[in-house]
Computed example of a mutant assay.
Amino acid sequence: MSLINTEVKPFAATAFHNGQFVPVSNESLKGKWSVVVFYPADFTFVCPTELEDLADNYATFQKLGVEVYSVSTDTHFAHKAWHDTSPAIKKVNYVMVGDPTGAITRNFDVMIEEEGLALRGTFVINPDGVIKLCEIHDNGIGRDASELLRKVKAAQYVASNPGEVCPAKWHEGAKTLTPSLDLVGKI
């Protein structure tokens, strides 16, 4: 069953954020747009490149009213140690959630049970706590924050403009579509 258009399941965790350990829960995701990015593990190889890319684009996410949460099955202590030692992770100003029990990772259906690690899962969640975008792929394939930003803007546009949809390669300001009987077979 797809997670699209389902509400985020309840969870509670501790995160590392701006030099502090802070509580985070499913309620933290409500009231604003959120991006939740799962990755396999701290102190690895592709993961810091992705988290750094998100950090480099974090101000743009914030301008869109979006909070970013990265999640791995590491502890919040490991996140702090990684933040303190990695030049790429030092740039991270968004919330780094620890999920050592794997409960959140399982809630989002990205747990690799035999490894105790998460797949690379990306979720865009609306202010009601409902999942609007879900991408899960192999751990050897890194993600691109600029493409994620495009998709967040599309999700926000569709939410604000009922009856309109964003076609392939849509970018902010580009033409959208209004599905109707008159449009059938004309694209």
Rank of each mutant, 00 (worst) to 15 (best):
D74W: 03
T75I: 05
T75L: 09
H76V: 09
H76E: 15
H76I: 05
F77L: 13
F77M: 08
F77K: 15
A78M: 10
A78T: 15
H79M: 08
H79E: 11
H79G: 10
K80P: 02
A81P: 02
A81L: 13
A81R: 02
W82A: 13
W82C: 12
H83R: 07
H83N: 08
H83C: 08
H83M: 10
D84V: 10
T85I: 12
T85D: 13
T85V: 10
T85P: 07
T85W: 07
S86A: 12
P87G: 03
P87L: 07
P87K: 11
A88Q: 15
A88M: 14
A88E: 15
I89L: 10
I89D: 04
K90V: 05
V92I: 13
V92G: 10
V92P: 15
V92E: 10
N93Y: 04
V95G: 01
V95Q: 00
G98Y: 10
D99W: 01
D99T: 14
D99Q: 06
P100V: 08
T101K: 15
G102K: 12
A103V: 04
A103W: 03
T105C: 07
R106G: 07
N107V: 10
N107D: 14
N107Y: 11
N107G: 14
F108Q: 15
F108T: 09
D109C: 11
D109H: 14
V110C: 09
V110Y: 12
I112D: 08
E113G: 08
G116K: 08
G116F: 06
L117I: 12
L117G: 02
L117K: 13
R120E: 04
R120Q: 08
G121K: 03
G121H: 04
G121S: 06
G121W: 05
T122W: 01
F123G: 00
F123H: 00
F123Y: 15
V124N: 04
I125E: 06
N126G: 01
N126Y: 03
D128M: 07
G129E: 06
G129T: 06
V130T: 11
I131S: 00
I131L: 00
L133K: 02
L133Y: 01
C134G: 02
C134V: 07
C134S: 05
E135V: 01
E135H: 01
E135P: 01
I136V: 12
H137P: 06
H137D: 14
H137I: 07
G140M: 09
G140Y: 08
I141R: 14
I141K: 13
I141A: 11
I141E: 14
G142M: 13
G142V: 11
R143Y: 00
D144W: 04
D144H: 04
D144E: 04
A145W: 13
S146V: 11
E147S: 07
E147L: 11
L149V: 12
K151A: 00
V152I: 14
K153E: 14
K153C: 07
A155N: 08
A155C: 13
A155F: 01
